[in-house]
Design a protein around this nucleic acid. Structure first.
Lengths: 137, 137
DNA sequence: CAGCATCCGTGGCGATACTG
DNA sequence: CAGTATCGCCACGGATGCTG
């Protein structure tokens, strides 16, 4: 229904025998650290360790790895200045800004709705608990 | 900068000692199968095996697991009819529709931009290859 | 049909050590 | 400082078999 027959290949997961490319891209963008890195870089450009501090809990390895994936996909621009000590600035490309905009929308919505989600969880948990005690009687 | 100091706790990852709740919710919504399930259910309601066919590549286990997470978070409504053979319909709640809307936006954008991403990858790969041959000379 | 339980492999991810 | 390289765990997720 609706207006979205164009997402068929994404949902199908295959594009004539091989893995659907758009699903791969979507997984990069929605990956655990990809989301947070895109949001951080949509604020401003960051140096490597700045970014590591900004995105709480990310390991050095995952930061490197995710940045490389995002750079390869054309979302992130890596500017390595040939100085000592090394200095590398990361920023979003035009493509990255477009993606980050959507991701931020989702993140902002999530942030706004956390309370509603936690209420739903409480209802779910008590409902399950009551069902459990009832069946054990 | 910009308009988004409200995402600070999300980026920090911690909310006064414990894991930030909004990050958990975001991870559920952006999880590998969560994204695709939300998109599918935004078309219409689906029965379990219907949904399994609609979302290509998802195993029965992951479909069950992801649906339970989304149901607990209040995104998905589970309607189990007491009939034989069993029939269970899944649909989005109002909260789920809101989330799915954002996710769909991202997915549609991704679908539209796959070509640009693949061009970026080609540029990245050839650039790296040239750098490699140059350093091996 | 719609699950749940179990086993089990892969790789995501963190921790550590080393380099330019 | 900004990485690369290596090791190792365990959790995500697939395959199989069983139940109401």
């Amino acid at each position: 229904m609706a207006v979205s027959e164009e997402l068929d290949s994404l949902l199908a997961g295959f594009d004539g025998g091989t893995m659907c490319p758009s699903r791969l891209v979507l997984e990069h963008v929605t990956s655990r650290w990809g989301v947070l890195i895109l949001i951080a870089l949509s604020e401003r450009s960051y140096r490597f360790s700045e970014l590591r501090r900004r995105v709480g809990g990310v390991s050095e390895k995952m930061l490197t790895q995710t940045l490389q994936t995002l750079e390869r996909d054309g979302f992130v621009h890596r500017d390595a200045k040939p100085v000592i000590p090394p200095r590398v600035d990361y920023s979003l490309t035009a493509l990255g800004e477009e993606a980050a905009g959507r991701v931020r929308e989702l993140a902002r919505w999530t942030d706004a709705r956390v309370a509603a989600v936690e209420e739903a969880r409480a209802r779910y948990d008590t409902a399950r608990r009551e069902a459990a005690t009832r069946s054990s009687q």
